[in-house]
């Protein structure tokens, strides 16, 4: 059972991961997100990780897989709120999430999706 609330607003799916998830919980979140996205035909999906203290290689892999899957569904995938310490840890581990579009805050990610001009990524 997925315990992360997934909100729908302005054709955008927003999920804020507020608690540390077990591997199984991450997987059920992933599948619920993909199902919802498929049903709602969104413009994009935003995942907010601003309260996560640890993103290990497992979580990183899930996020990077999600990017590919959501893009395959024809929606944009945006990540926001990666903490500084989490980011440098991921880089040192060798997990560079460079193909994910990242934003500092949910607000910036949301503005990006709702505005028309996407010149700078």
């Amino acid at each position: 059972m997925n315990k992360i609330p997934i909100l729908y607003l302005n054709s955008i799916l927003i999920a804020s991961i507020q608690t540390e998830l077990t591997d199984e919980e991450v997987l059920s979140f992933q599948s619920e997100l993909l199902t919802k996205n498929n049903n709602l035909l969104t413009k994009g999906v935003i995942i907010d990780v601003s309260t996560l203290d640890v993103i290990d290689s497992y979580m990183a892999k899930v996020l990077s897989d999600l990017t590919t899957m959501v893009k395959l569904q024809g929606s944009a995938f945006l990540l926001c709120g990666v903490k500084p310490a989490v980011s440098s840890t991921l880089v040192d581990m060798g997990m560079m999430l460079t193909k994910i579009d990242t934003f500092q805050s949910l607000e910036k990610a949301f503005n990006f999706l709702t505005s028309n001009d996407r010149k700078y990524q």
């Binding site: 903490k83 500084p84 880089v91 560079m96 460079t98 990242t102 500092q104």
Partner: peptide, 12 residues
């Protein structure tokens, strides 16, 4: 390079 990638991941 590490700095650039890490900054990108936080959105800068």
């Amino acid at each position: 390079l590490k700095t650039i990638v890490a900054a990108k991941m936080v959105g800068t």
